[in-house]
Design a protein around this nucleic acid. Structure first.
Length: 910
DNA sequence: ATACATACC
DNA sequence: TACTGGTATGTAT
C-alpha cells in the first residue's frame, strides 16, 4: 500500500501469476475463509490444463502492460505532472459544481438468486452447500457453499474439489424468470421506469415515489405478514390492492378497512416514509411474495447505489445520504475494485501504482491522466469524487447480436461449416425477431488452447437472414481454415455476431423510397429480394472468396422489373394529396380533443367524424382498433383519457379508406375502390406470385447457394444439419430455433451470481416498458425442419412461437401482442401507410425520385425483416443434414445453453 | 474498420 | 471429463 511498485509487476512472484485464477473474493461475502488453502486446491486442480496455460499467458500480457506503464511513468517529469494536476483540478471543479444529489437511486439485488430459488423449492437443500449450474460451470452458490470458496463462474468440478459434499443443481431459468417477474411487479410500484439489469437486479429512481409517499396515510404503508409463502399477492394489504386498480379510494384515508382483513395472523408492519423505510418495505414485500431476500443500496447516483447494495448483503440495505461530505467519506476507504467497471486487470494496474482505494485514486489523478486514456481517467475521476449517473435512463438501442457455442474439440471442417450455419440460422432468427439488420458479420473462434480469434467483415448492405450471414461467416471461416491447412483448425468454440445495425436511420429512407415508388407507380423492383436472396448471388463465384467483394453480392434483378410500370397515373398523386389533407384534418381534431376543446365526444369518435366523407370499409374492426377502443371505457367521455385511441384510430381509418384508383406496381393492374390495406395485400400476393412465376433466379439461387455454401472445401452436398436431427434428442441443448441462449454465470460481488440477461425494454410512448410475457417456450419449432420438399412452403416461422409477442413492427417499432401472422402483417401495412402519409406531409416529395430503389426494395426488406415472410424456401435446408449424428460436434456445458429465451420480456408492467 | 481485451451479469 | 454466453466498450493498430 505504501508505495508503488511493490514487485507486483514482476513476473517472478509466483502468487502473482495467479491473480486470474485465484479465488475471487474481493467483492464480498467470503470473509474468514482459508484463502491460501482454497487457492492451493484451485491451483492444483487447474494446473496443466489448457485453460490454465492460457490464463498464465494472459497474465503475462497484463504484466507486460503494467511494465510498459511503469516505464512510461518513469519518464514523466515534474512539469508534466504539474500541468496535469492543473487540468485535473479544473475538471474536478467543474464536476463538483455540477454534482447532483437530488435523486434517490436504489440498486436492488436478490441474494444468491438462483440458489435461493432452488433452496426455496427444495428444502432438502437448505442445510447443504449447493450451487446452481453444472460440473463445467456454476452460475451461483448458496452461502453455505461460499464458505468453501465455491462461487459463481467457478467450474463445478473444481468446486467439488473444494467442497466434496457440494450439491450441484441444474439451472431452471423458467423458474427464475417467473420469480423475477414477480419481483419486478413490485419494483414497478416504486418506479414504473425501473431498469432491470438482469433477472435478479435492477436500478430504481424512487425520488417521485418518496415525494408522494410523504403524504400517504399509514394504511398505504401497512403490510401484513403472511406465512403462506407461495401465495402470490399474499402480502397485499387492502390499500395495495386498491392502489392497483387506481381506485379513488386510494386517496382516501380509510383506516378501518385494512385492519379488518388482517385476519391471518394479524401481524402488521407499518413502514415509514423515509427512503430506507420505503426500500425496507419493498424488500419486505419481495420476501413475502417470493420467500426470497434482496439487498439494496440507496444513494444519490447509480454508481454509489450499486456499491451500497453490496455492503450489507445478504438481506440488508445501506444508504448514503445526499451530502457531499458523507459521499466523500464513504469513498475514501472504498477499494477501487468494488466499483462497477473496475475489474481485476484495472485493479492490478492501479495497484502497481500504489492505488488500492478511492482516496488514493483521487490523489494520483494527475498521474493517471498521463498514463491512461481520457475516457479512462475521466472515469477514475468520477469514481474518486463519488459521482455517477443520476438518471435511470432507458437503455439504448442494441448494438450487436451474437450467438456462440462451446463444444468438444472439433477439427473436421465439414462439421465446422455445418456448425457455423447452425449459428447463423439461430442468429438470423433472433435478428428477425427484433427486426434488425446489420452490416458487419463477425466470426469468433476459440481453439482448444483457449486462444480466441475474431474475424469481421463489413458488407455494403445490412443483412439478417441465415443465408446472408452465413455467406459472410463461412468465408471468414474458410480463411481461417485455409490459413492453417493442411492442419485442421481445432476448435472448442464458435460464435457469430452481427453488428452495425441500420434500423433506426433505415426507416426514413425506406419511407421515402416507398413513396417515390408509389408516386411513380414503381419503376423497378431490383432490390426486392435483397434480403432473401442477395447472398445467393455472392455464391456465384465459387472460389469461395465471395465475401471479399461484397459488391458482387448485388441481387439479380427480378424479372418483375421488366414490367415497366411506366409512370404513374396522376391518380396516385391525387390520392396521396387527398389523404394528406385528411390526415391534417384529423390531427387538428386530435389536437383540439387533447386540448380539451371537444368535451362531447371521445377523441376516437371525433377522429372518426372527420372521416365521414370517406367510406370506411367495415373491415376488420380489427384487433388494433378494437383493442384501443375498448380501452376507452366505452360510453361517455370526459376529456381525461383516450389519447391513445385518438392516435390509433386515425391511422386505421386512413389505411382502410377506399381509394379511387391505384395501380399495382408489380402487375400493373389498375385497381379501383380498394383500401390501402387491400392494396398492400394485393402487392404481397403479386410479389409472391412473381417470385414464383417470373423469378427463376430467385428460386434457383438458394439451391445453388446451398451447394456452394455447404462445402466450401469439401465434396458432396451435405454439411447442413437440420437442427431437429442434429443432436441427441434426449438433450435439449439443441436449441429451439426460436430461443435465445442465456448466459449462465454470474460473477459478482459477494460471490452472488449475476445472470446475464438482456432485459429488453421497449419504448412505448417514450417510456421504458417491458413486454409482459408470461412464459417463454423453451423448446419448439424444431419440428419446422422436418418436412422437406422442393417447393416453397408456407411457413409461419415466427408465429410458430407459441408466445407470439415476439413480433415487432418494423415501422413503429412496437411489439405486437398478436401472434397471428395476418394480423401482424396488417398492422405493418397500416403502420406503413400511416408513415408514408406522414412522411409525405412532412416533406412533400416532388414527383421525381426516379432513381429511388422504389417500392420493391422497400417491401422486400420489410418482407424479410419486419413483416413475417409468408413464404420461405425450405429447399435450401434440404439435403443439408447429411452429417451423420456421429460427426455432429457435441455441445458442451449443456446446462448452460439450454434455456433460450427472448431477449425481451422483462415482465414489467406499465 | 478490424482485432483483441476488459468488464458486467 | 470438465473453465459459459451475450453485450458493451475500451485499447491499439
Amino acid at each position: 500500500m505504501e508505495s508503488h511498485h511493490q514487485g507486483a509487476v514482476s513476473s517472478s512472484s509466483g502468487a502473482d501469476l495467479l491473480s486470474r485464477i485465484a479465488l475471487n473474493d474481493n467483492k464480498a461475502g467470503m470473509e474468514g475463509l482459508d484463502r491460501d488453502k482454497i487457492n492451493k486446491i484451485i491451483l492444483e486442480t487447474s494446473k496443466g490444463s489448457k485453460f490454465y496455460e492460457n490464463e498464465l499467458k494472459k497474465e503475462q500480457q497484463v504484466n507486460q502492460r503494467i511494465e510498459k506503464m511503469m516505464e512510461q511513468k518513469a519518464r514523466i517529469t515534474k512539469e508534466q505532472l504539474k500541468q496535469a494536476q492543473a487540468e485535473v483540478d479544473k475538471l474536478t471543479c467543474e464536476l463538483e459544481r455540477s454534482r447532483e444529489l437530488g435523486r434517490v437511486i436504489v440498486h436492488v439485488d436478490m441474494d444468491a438468486f438462483y440458489a435461493a430459488v432452488e433452496m426455496r423449492d427444495c428444502p432438502e437443500l437448505k442445510d447443504k452447500p449447493m450451487a446452481v449450474g453444472s460440473m463445467s460451470m456454476l452460475s451461483t452458490s448458496n452461502y453455505h457453499a461460499r464458505r468453501f470458496g465455491v462461487r459463481a463462474a467457478m467450474p463445478g468440478f473444481i468446486a467439488k474439489k473444494l467442497c466434496p459434499n457440494l450439491v450441484i443443481v441444474p439451472t431452471n431459468f423458467d423458474k427464475y424468470r417467473a420469480v423475477s417477474a414477480q419481483v419486478r411487479e413490485i419494483f414497478s410500484e416504486y418506479d414504473p421506469h425501473f431498469m432491470p439489469m438482469s433477472l435478479d437486479e435492477a436500478y430504481l429512481d424512487i425520488t417521485e415515489h418518496l415525494e408522494e409517499r410523504k403524504h400517504w396515510p399509514e394504511t398505504m404503508r401497512t403490510y401484513y405478514i403472511c406465512d403462506a409463502k407461495t401465495g402470490n399477492d399474499a402480502d397485499r394489504s387492502a390499500a395495495e390492492s386498491e392502489r392497483d386498480e387506481l381506485s379513488p379510494v386510494l386517496f382516501e384515508d380509510s383506516p378501518s378497512s385494512s385492519p379488518s382483513l388482517s385476519g391471518a395472523d394479524g401481524k402488521a408492519e407499518v413502514f415509514g416514509t423515509s427512503a430506507e423505510e420505503a426500500v425496507r418495505e419493498m424488500r419486505f414485500r419481495i420476501e413475502q411474495k417470493t420467500s426470497l431476500t434482496a439487498s439494496a443500496g440507496i444513494a444519490p447516483n447509480m454508481m454509489l447505489a450499486k456499491v451500497c447494495s453490496d455492503k450489507n448483503k445478504p438481506n440488508g440495505e445501506y444508504r448514503i445520504p445526499p451530502e457531499r461530505q458523507v459521499v466523500m467519506g464513504f469513498m475514501k476507504d472504498l477499494p477501487v475494485r468494488k466499483v462497477s467497471g473496475v475489474g481485476k486487470v484495472t485493479e492490478k494496474m492501479l495497484a502497481a501504482l500504489g492505488i488500492v482505494n478511492c482516496d488514493q485514486l483521487g490523489q494520483q489523478m494527475a498521474l493517471l491522466s498521463l498514463l491512461f486514456s481520457g475516457t479512462s481517467w475521466h472515469n477514475f475521476l468520477h469514481i474518486s469524487l463519488g459521482l455517477g449517473s443520476t438518471c435511470i435512463e432507458r437503455d439504448s438501442e442494441r448494438k450487436s447480436m451474437s450467438t456462440e457455442r462451446t463444444f468438444v474439440e472439433m477439427s473436421d471442417a465439414e462439421a465446422q461449416y455445418s456448425l457455423c450455419r447452425d449459428l447463423c440460422q439461430d442468429l438470423a432468427q433472433d435478428l428477425q425477431r427484433e427486426g434488425l439488420k446489420g452490416k458487419t458479420v463477425t466470426l469468433k473462434l476459440k481453439n482448444v488452447k483457449f486462444e480466441v480469434k475474431t474475424r469481421a467483415f463489413t458488407l455494403q448492405y445490412a443483412v439478417c437472414t441465415e443465408e446472408q450471414i452465413f455467406a459472410a461467416a463461412k468465408d471468414l471461416l474458410k480463411v481461417e481454415i485455409d490459413s492453417v491447412s493442411p492442419q485442421p483448425l481445432k476448435l472448442r468454440l464458435m460464435g457469430v455476431r452481427v453488428s452495425g445495425f441500420i434500423s433506426a436511420e433505415d426507416k426514413k429512407p425506406l419511407q421515402r423510397s416507398i413513396m417515390g415508388f408509389l408516386q411513380k407507380g414503381g419503376s423497378d423492383s431490383s432490390s426486392f429480394t435483397q434480403c432473401a436472396g442477395s447472398v445467393l448471388k455472392a455464391e456465384e463465384d465459387s472460389d469461395g472468396a465471395s465475401f471479399l467483394k461484397p459488391q458482387a453480392t448485388e441481387m439479380k434483378v427480378p424479372s418483375v422489373s421488366e414490367q415497366k410500370p411506366e409512370s404513374k397515373g396522376p391518380q396516385q398523386q391525387s390520392f396521396f394529396q387527398r389523404a394528406q389533407l385528411k390526415r391534417l384534418q384529423q390531427q387538428q381534431v386530435q389536437i383540439s380533443v387533447m386540448a380539451g376543446t371537444d368535451t362531447t365526444n371521445n377523441s376516437a369518435d371525433a377522429a372518426a367524424d372527420t372521416q365521414t366523407d370517406l367510406p370506411t370499409t367495415n373491415n376488420l374492426s380489427d384487433t388494433t382498433s378494437a383493442k384501443s377502443l375498448s380501452n376507452t371505457n366505452s360510453g361517455t367521455d370526459t376529456t381525461s383519457y383516450v389519447n391513445k385511441p385518438a392516435v390509433l384510430k386515425p391511422s386505421f381509418k386512413i389505411s382502410t379508406q377506399v381509394l379511387p384508383f391505384l395501380t399495382c406496381p408489380v402487375c400493373n393492374t389498375e385497381m379501383k375502390n380498394v383500401n390501402l390495406t387491400a392494396f398492400n395485400n394485393h402487392i404481397d400476393e403479386c410479389l409472391k406470385g412473381s417470385a414464383v412465376d417470373n423469378e427463376p433466379t430467385h428460386l434457383d439461387a438458394p439451391k445453388e447457394q446451398e451447394e456452394l455454401n455447404s462445402k466450401p472445401p469439401a465434396s458432396s452436398s451435405e454439411s447442413r444439419t437440420l437442427k431437429s436431427s442434429s443432436h441427441d434428442p434426449a438433450c435439449n441443448e439443441e436449441k429451439p430455433s426460436t430461443s435465445i441462449s442465456v448466459p449462465l454465470v454470474e460473477t459478482d460481488e459477494d460471490g452472488d451470481f449475476k445472470t446475464p440477461f438482456f432485459s429488453h425494454r421497449t419504448k412505448i410512448n417514450g417510456k421504458r416498458s417491458v413486454l409482459s410475457k408470461k412464459k417463454m417456450p423453451v423448446c419448439e419449432s424444431s419440428s419446422n425442419a422436418s418436412p422437406k420438399t422442393h417447393n416453397l412452403e408456407a411457413v409461419t416461422e415466427m408465429s410458430s412461437d407459441s408466445n407470439g409477442s415476439s413480433l415487432t413492427c418494423p415501422v413503429c417499432s412496437q411489439p405486437q401482442s398478436t401472434d397471428d401472422l395476418a394480423l401482424f402483417n396488417r398492422h405493418v401495412d397500416m403502420c406503413l401507410s400511416q408513415d408514408v402519409l406522414l412522411e409525405f406531409r412532412e416533406s412533400h416529395p416532388p414527383v421525381g425520385h426516379s432513381d429511388e430503389p422504389a417500392l420493391k426494395s422497400v417491401r422486400g426488406q420489410l418482407g424479410d425483416q419486419g413483416r413475417v415472410s409468408k413464404v420461405r424456401e425450405k429447399s435450401k435446408r434440404q439435403g443439408s443434414s447429411t452429417l451423420p449424428p456421429s460427426k455432429k460436434p457435441k455441445v458442451l456445458s449443456t446446462k448452460h445453453t439450454i434455456d433460450k429465451f427472448f431477449k425481451g420480456n422483462a415482465g414489467q408492467k406499465v
